[in-house]
Every structure is written in C-alpha cells, then in structure tokens.
C-alpha cells in the first residue's frame, strides 16, 4: 500500500476539510471534532459538487451545491438519497496525515489512469 503524505493534522481545520490535488483528481480530506481524519473523492455523487467545501458534522458532510449528506466513513449518500463517492484509506502518524489513494478500478470516474500511483509534485 502506498501512502501519500498530505501534511500536518493541524493543517486540516476541525469540522472542516482541505483539498488535496493529486494525479488521480482532487481528494477531500476531512477532520471531525474528535480529530478523526477521512478522505473521499472531492465529488458529490449527485452533481459532482466539491465536498471539501461543505459543512462537516459528526461523520458526515453536507454537499455545498444541493445539501446531499455524504457519510465520511463510507462515501455513501445518507437518507433517501443514493449514490456513493470513492473513499480512501487514511492514517495519522506523529501528527502527520497520510492518504492511500484507492485503486481507480474500484469505481471508474473517468480519470482513465489506472496505472501506478503518482502524485503531482509542486
């Protein structure tokens, strides 16, 4: 499993999120009130809204475009809505946040690139 170092835990606001630009598209990294970290594709399953811009509470985020509520743990829409966005494994070690981008094959999102993991440098 390949881990991508995103940065310090402090760089993600509590009950907030940051966007991570990767070669596999934008990933939204969320932080809950109790400092748990979650990562999802930054696309709502509804109309592609950037989930990183939504309001975070408990283990959920409300999409900023049409208020779909997405589970941070599974990436699935809650309530009567149905749809799922790709989730990614995360871990926090020594105050640093790491994300492992889920294989693209799991849910093709038109990224096209299913080859070896690569992230854009800065």
């Amino acid at each position: 499993m390949q881990w991508l170092e995103v940065g310090g835990l402090d760089e993600v606001p509590r009950l907030g999120a940051r966007v991570v630009r990767t070669g596999h598209g934008d990933i939204a990294v969320f932080r809950s009130a109790d400092d748990k970290i979650f990562a999802l594709d930054d696309r709502c399953p509804h109309k592609g809204g950037p989930l990183s811009q939504g309001i975070v509470y408990d283990r959920r985020v409300a999409c900023p475009l049409h208020n779909w509520v997405i589970s941070l743990e599974s990436g699935a829409a809650t309530g009567p809505d149905s749809g799922c966005t790709r989730r990614h494994e995360v871990k926090v070690e020594n105050g640093r946040v790491y994300v492992s981008i889920a294989a693209v094959e799991v849910r093709t999102r038109g990224q096209g690139d299913s080859e070896a993991f690569a992230a854009t440098g800065t």
């Binding site: 991508l4 170092e5 940065g7 760089e11 991570v20 630009r21 990294v29």
Partner: peptide, 15 residues
C-alpha cells in the same frame, strides 16, 4: 490562508 490553498503533496512515500 488555509481556506484558499489546496494541498499539493510533496512526494509519494512507500511505507
């Protein structure tokens, strides 16, 4: 500033 800056991860690291 954080609100407006996306994170560009430095290098992928195998652990």
């Amino acid at each position: 500033r954080r609100e407006f800056t996306p994170i560009h991860p430095v290098t992928p690291r195998a652990v």
